[in-house]
Amino acid sequence: MQNYAFEMNDVSIRYPHFKMEGLNLSLPQGQVMGLVGVNGAGKSTTIRILMGLVKADSGQVKALGYNLPEHQVQAKYDIGFASDDMRLYKSQTLQWHMDFIKSIYPKFDSAYAADLLKRFDLIADQQIKGISHGQRVKACLLLVLARRPKLLILDEPTTGLDPVAREEVICELADILLDDERSVLFSSHNTHDIEKLSDQIAFLDRGKLLALQDKESYLESWARFRCQINNTSSESVLGAVSIKRNGQIAEIVTAQYSPHYVAQLQQAGFSVLEQHRMSLEEIFVANIKRSR
């Protein structure tokens, strides 16, 4: 039987200007899931439901085998959560925060914390109010990582970071992800980060899950073709997400790419001039456009 780090079955929630209906999302243990979506897509709501901070109107939520939100206390001992809107106490030092976390989590790894302190170039005795946004994000990650969580949930962790700090954070996360036991849910609207780190990609838009697939096959299933339009060209092609015509040239995007797809296009009356693999960002935009 497959073990899941978390499972969300048929989860629905309604707010005055937002609704999420029948969300099914699960993450096998040891996997990294990238949660992609524009602002307001429901990424944070999904994560808050997973952290027990918001109670869904209906549906079932389980994390590390515990029902949420009922057993969130037990679950949270093994969940590490950091988000871009999370702040530490300004008047206290990072050391105070580390001591505080250590007093709560028996598994807190002080040696690892000291190591991260060096790698992130942080000063333990500095007051939080004196550190930059990038350092604060790294401090939050340090506090989360040093407790060695089984499930790591990161809500937009790289938002607002300068390129160097972002690179540092991403490298550190990539290192951590080498641990096969640890599962990660990682939301971002930065598709480069997701592309670098994830095993699985989940696309959310307006509270709906547009796609959920492993990264490799997902990226492979998307392709963009530049084609010559012939007289015999048909209006549509099976598996095409979009067809943009510009004079005699058409740009066709598909989400069902296979080596036979070129033949399929030719059968539909298009002569393929160029063929491109798509980045996650391009797929993201195409996917959103298709869904709306």
Binding site: L53, V73, K76, I79, D85, M86, I104
Partner: peptide, 17 residues
């Protein structure tokens, strides 16, 4: 206001407690 609540609520405690 200072957004320290998400930090505390990420700890093993329910919002009610």
């Amino acid at each position: 206001k200072d957004q320290t609540m998400p930090f505390i609520l990420s700890l093993p405690i329910s919002p009610q407690h």
